[in-house]
Each structure stands twice: as C-alpha cells, then as structure tokens.
Design a binder for these strands. Structure first.
Lengths: 203, 203
DNA sequence: CACGCTGTCTACCACTTGGTAGAGGTGCAG
DNA sequence: CTGCACCTCTACCAAGTGGTAGACAGCGTG
C-alpha cells in the first residue's frame, strides 16, 4: 500500500544518487541534497551519520539493483544469438533506464579506484566469468570467432556501454549536433550493438 | 637551452592537470596544487587569476597536444589496413602516454557537458569527418563492411579507448586481479584493437 | 644609483563545508 | 497521563575554501 509513500531515508538516497551522479561527490554539498528533499542538513545527518555513509548507501543501492537484475536473465535465456541479444539488451536497458547509474559508476571508478576494485571483483567478475563460459562453448561449436578474448571482450562491451550512456552530450555533439538527441542516441546504440555482435560471431 | 627550466606557470599547469585528473576539479584545492609545485596559494593566483582560469588553461593545454598530434599522422599515412593501424595506434598511444589525459577528458565531459559540447565540436568533429570519409572510400572498393555507421563507429572506438585507459583499475580487477597489471593491460588493448578491426573490415 | 617589472611571500577576508548539541514535537504503548 | 522512540528543527563550531592586500626581494635598464 505504501508504494508511493517513500521514507525520508529513501528520498535522501535518491536525491543523493542524482546529485552525486551529475555533480560528483565533492561537487555536491549535504546542504544541496537536503534542500532537494525539502529537509535540513541535520535531519539528513540523522538518517545517514556522515557524508561517506551516504555515499556508501548510494553505491550499495546501485549494486543491489544490478545484482537483482542480472541473475534472472542469465537463467532465463537459451543460447547463441538469442542469448547474446538478451544480454546486450539488458545491459543497455539497465543503464539507459537511469543514466545516472552510468555516471555514478564512472565517477566512483575514477574517484576511488582502489576502493572500487573489490566492488568490481564482487559484483562484476562472477557474472563476467559465467558469460565468458558461454562464449567458450560457442567457440567449440564453431559459432564464435576463434580469436576472441572472452573476458576482455565482455569488459569492453560493458565499458563502452557505460561510457556511451554516461556521455550523451559527447555523442550528440560529435555525431550530429543539429539532429534530435533521441534519434542520434538510437543510431549510436545500434552501431554499438553491431560492433559487439560482429566482433563476436563468425559470419 | 631552457628545455629543463620550466616556468612556474608551466609547473602549475602540469601539477593541476595531474591533480584535476586524479581527484577531480572540485576535489582539488588550490592549496594542494601550490604545495605540489612548492609555492604558496597567492603565488599560484598570481599566474592564474582564478581557479576557473586554471581549469581552462589545463584543458586548452590538453587540446593543444591533441591538435598538434592528429593532423600530421592524417597526412602521413597511405590507405586501407595500414592507415587503420596507424590511426588506432596513435589514438591509443596518445592516451596511454599520459593516462591523466583520458581521466581529465572523461571528468570534464561529465562535469560540464554543456561547455564541453563546443570543445568536442571544435576539436573532435572535424577529425571525425575526415576519417569517416576514408571509411566511405573503403566501402566503395569493397574493403569495408557495408553496414558500418562511419561516424558512430569512430566515436565508439574513441570512447572505448578513453574509458579503458582512464580505468586501468577496473580492467585489472575484473580481468585478472592476480596478474601483473601491465601484462593485463597489454592483453586488454590487444582485444580492443581486434574488436575495432574486425567490426570494420570485411573478412 | 634609482626605477620599475616580475615574482614570491605573510596576513587576512568572507563564505561554505561536514558535523554536533540540544530543544522540541508527534504519536504510540503502558 | 506518562514515558519514550522517532524525527525534525535552530543555533553553533572548527576547518578549509577561493580570493585579496600589500610588503618585499631580485634584477635588468636608464
């Protein structure tokens, strides 16, 4: 029933996610976050004991989304081309649904590389290994190019997706400044899929 | 003769580049930059009238490098595979020579998308159009895949290169945490080249 | 020598930052 | 009603921020 009544803590977390993503952690003051929620700074600090605690919560929230999304589609899909489509679609959908996710991730990666190392190992690596195994299978049945470096390939596709979706402006400016942004993005994502596909499968 | 005697202004710019790249603009104080150079804050502000002026100088410096590098190799290279190799090699070399360039660029793109729009249009787009024309030629002589979206393809390769080289940690952690970083990077860049090549040329 | 230019400093300013203290207020359980 | 847990506030703090004022030192030129 309380689907539309969100707690203060949740509202704070959402506002912080948005602001951290767009202005960076250091570029965002607790004041600004509190104002966005419509509360004062001490109230915010009642819910999260420090700015760093808030950062941790925001990040954990993101990874929770990721962890809840990925496994269900790994088991749902069959194999070969269909599986490839499902995975890339979901990857793109995840970051496109809320581009702040891509921005936030990119920022954390750059701001705290050492800290993010374990996060990546925990949240990305297991999934990477599973999908890499799919690819190896595909190689054996001759469906996939022999010279693909499975893990490396996957990481490139993920990196490219995140980087692309966290920088809509770059894309739009470089590609076709005068055209409607959404159409340009659509076109650019189509090329991303093509690039991923054609460099993986045998013709 | 004064090749090793660098002026204060230059030293400041270099230090600022390094710190802005690694800790972000908002995460870096003038104090910290001055300390790195071995001067005080007012001295720094004597050479650059404001923090924003320093940011502008740092960015201009980066683009100057870029502009001086690109054209000479565009004319130096012949065509086809050789040209492709030369271009991707140079792209990778440019950002690998100093990974702070990739970091800084990525950060500015995220921090000030609106401002960076024109920078991208001025510095990247012309170059993109020229190379896209090469690709179109390659298509006509049947050397390049028909379904390549030239500009979009190029932008993806650039984006991927920057994102990859600005996040060595991500790569290393996700790919092979226990192996020597340099070897992992080498492997990862090899796959990047393969990906770029195979999705462009006909077999 | 005296002048002015360039570069560096110390001392300071107003302002913002993350964070604390402590006083309510509201609503629910005994 | 009393207590109490939860939440929100006003008022405040020490530390750090970007930036300014002004003194002074070196140094080449008249």
């Amino acid at each position: 029933m309380d689907t539309q009544r969100a707690s203060s803590a949740e509202l704070i977390c959402e506002a912080a996610t948005r602001l951290f993503a767009r202005q960076g952690f250091d570029g965002t003051s607790l004041q600004a976050i509190a104002a966005q929620v419509g509360i004062t700074k001490p109230t915010l600090l009642y819910h999260y004991p420090s700015k760093d605690a808030l950062r941790a919560a925001v990040l954990e929230n993101l990874f929770a989304h990721w962890r809840s999304t990925v496994p269900q589609l790994l088991e749902a899909v069959t194999s070969g081309h269909a599986r490839f489509e499902a995975l890339t679609n979901e990857l793109i959908r995840f970051f496109r649904e809320d581009p702040d996710r891509a921005l936030l991730l990119m920022r954390e990666l750059m701001d705290r590389p050492v800290h993010m190392r374990e996060q990546v190992i925990d949240n990305l690596r297991p999934w990477l290994r599973v999908v890499a195994e799919y690819i190896r299978t595909g190689k054996r049945i001759g469906q996939i190019r022999e010279d693909v470096d499975e893990e490396s390939y996957l990481l490139h596709v993920v990196t490219l997706t995140i980087a692309t979706l966290s920088n809509a402006t770059l894309v739009q400016a470089a590609l076709a400044p005068e055209q409607p942004p959404q159409a340009v993005e659509e076109r650019h994502l189509r090329e991303l899929r093509r690039l991923a596909k054609v460099s993986l499968f045998r013709d």
